[in-house]
Design a binder for these strands. Structure first.
Lengths: 348, 348
DNA sequence: TTGAAAGCGGTACCAC
DNA sequence: GTGGTACCGCTTTCAA
């Protein structure tokens, strides 16, 4: 005989009724707190199974002030655009690996600092946040710190040493890319890059670039710096600028594989052979870099590991663990592909 | 003089006290319900601003049974691995566009059907879910439907016409890819694909493949079907198989750009020139397909649009809107690149 | 070992 | 128009 059920979700109360115990006991069984007889535990557990109970996290969160939710926040990148860059995905992937079986869920959110507020962090009671690519003076840092919740800053170069940070050795990356070219005999090296002043990450890489030049006694020449947005289109445009205005350049350094991808396309379209007439170096070591033609010489960073470590730091903070080493700097390495070779003897 | 504050978050009560009204009134102001005098509204709003109040969503959710959270669920793909496929990024991107300024947050979750339960949907009180790539008999469909929450199935070919679905014309896609090659004179066309029986999407594309052959009176030959996992490595291996065992093949059809990418790499490594000696077709039209060498001829689908529409259907369901057309099928089109050309006269 | 009850921060009904 | 209050589902203290 079918009952017209109210279809309400089963709650702790229903379990209590079914098991003939109080809701407090049910709660204790669920959370494994207090001491109860084996018998009650069994009865309650059976009731839970029979009735198909699942806890209501809203209620639990309300009471405990914890949400088991945390955020990955990317300032400066608007929602939709976030997903154009494989970097973020690799990162999230790493985060999720660390989160596996920890009962946390992740909310990924792109933010435009000027427009958006951070109220959702409070509203949702996020237990912690990972922030990507902030910088010392950004509002984001200020606001997040005000909230006083566990957080980890990635690629942010914050000067405050109390803050948890994950970085890579960007300076080394810029250095390695450039040095590699120099060792191959290149001297006229164009750099395609967004304004290094807006991002500490780019600034570091830029410094590495200059260090390599200096070490080789090659003077830095402004003409060889081409400012472009860091994306494929930027690379495309930038490469065309090189072709048109810097006909003595024999190599191009970019600070992202995505940019390099655009560079390769432009060079191909202009019939400039890579690496014969022009060497190209990328940065990141994203999955496709190996599948381009020619395959890309690039500065590899372990993005997934970055995500893992960030998540790990966050989890440990949330547990209230004492953490001595608050900044983690990952190394990078040059991954040689086919896009670079020795400079050909100039034909006169 | 500093007070030792309890540092508790300001709640509706604090606002009520500050504004000298009841919490009911505050709630009404916040939600714009009921009729109140302009004056009270102003006072309350000021108090909210002064105290920096943000609502506690857990509390609200508890009361209203809505979470303003929804899930994008990918069965068959385990958490971390989800992010290896640009398809999902693009899709999520579309979803977020539709969600813009709707106060919803998205949780992306890969699931292994066998292992995982769907309890998180209930626990978090998700207001709705978008499921990618389920199929009629999958547990996922059954379970989600039992939950009775708004949902949209994408790429799932569910036979139940009551269900909300977004699809592309996969059959047409398979057909177009193949027909294009046939028109170029190819007859020995290898197909690299995962088992079409496990996924309705692949089955449809496979059917399109066969239809094109049939139309051209080319008999389908089992030898030319190479089963591989749909990823770059699969493409790489598959192409090598073609090289070794099918030396009469002049073209390769794949059902994903990622696969095609692997194919191109293998062919390049084996010194098989594309498209001169072998034509290659991809599927999806992902961002990098245009940057490969040669650029990929591929079946383009508007993944972002898929995401937009799915999100839109979901939002409308949640609003309780009447929706007549429950299944949306997007078209696809052939995007010609450099990876296909007419078959060269066979050299004897 | 178990249970009664207060209360987390809201919403919504109903009385004034 | 405004306010009192029950209640959402759960955790937790304290008493039995």
């Amino acid at each position: 005989m079918k009952k017209l059920k109210n279809e309400k979700r089963v709650s702790i109360k229903d379990i209590a009724k079914r098991a003939n115990v109080s809701i407090a006991t049910v709660s204790n069984v669920i959370n494994g707190k207090g001491r109860m007889s084996e018998k009650t535990i069994k009865i309650v557990k059976e009731a839970i199974k029979e009735l198909g109970y699942t806890p209501n996290l809203s209620a639990r969160n309300l009471k405990t002030n914890r949400s088991h939710l945390f955020g990955i926040i990317v300032p400066t990148v608007k929602g939709g655009k976030l997903h154009d860059n494989p970097f973020y995905w690799k990162f999230v992937s790493g985060v999720e690996v660390s989160m596996e079986n920890k009962e946390y869920q992740v909310i990924l959110k792109g933010i435009v600092e000027e427009e958006e507020s951070f109220s959702f962090i409070q509203e949702r009671q996020l237990d912690g946040v990972i922030v990507l690519g902030a910088y010392d003076d950004s509002k984001t840092v200020q606001k997040i710190k005000e909230l006083g919740i566990p957080c980890v800053f990635v690629d942010s170069y914050l000067s405050n040493s109390d803050v948890f940070q994950v970085l890579i050795d960007d300076e080394l990356g810029g250095y390695l890319a450039t040095k590699h070219l120099i060792e191959l005999g290149h001297e006229k090296i164009a750099l395609l890059c967004d304004d290094p002043m807006v991002s500490p990450v780019l600034r570091k890489r830029f410094e590495g670039f200059k260090r390599a030049l200096k070490e080789a006694n090659i003077s830095y020449d402004d003409r060889f710096f081409i400012q472009i947005p860091i994306n494929a289109e930027g690379g495309y445009q930038g490469a065309n600028t090189v072709i048109k205005k810097l006909n003595d350049a024999t190599a191009i350094v970019t600070f992202s594989d995505i940019t390099a991808m655009g560079v390769l396309k432009a060079l191909k379209a202009a019939n400039v052979s890579v690496p014969k007439e022009m060497s190209v170096v990328g940065f990141d070591g994203l999955f496709f870099s190996d599948y381009l033609t020619p395959s890309l010489t690039t500065v590899y960073q372990d993005i997934e590991m970055k995500g893992k470590i960030a998540a790990d730091l966050l989890l440990r903070q949330m547990k209230g663990e004492e953490i001595e080493e608050r900044t983690c700097i990952l190394s990078v390495q040059l991954k040689k592909g086919e896009s670079t070779k020795g400079v050909s003897p100039s034909v006169l």
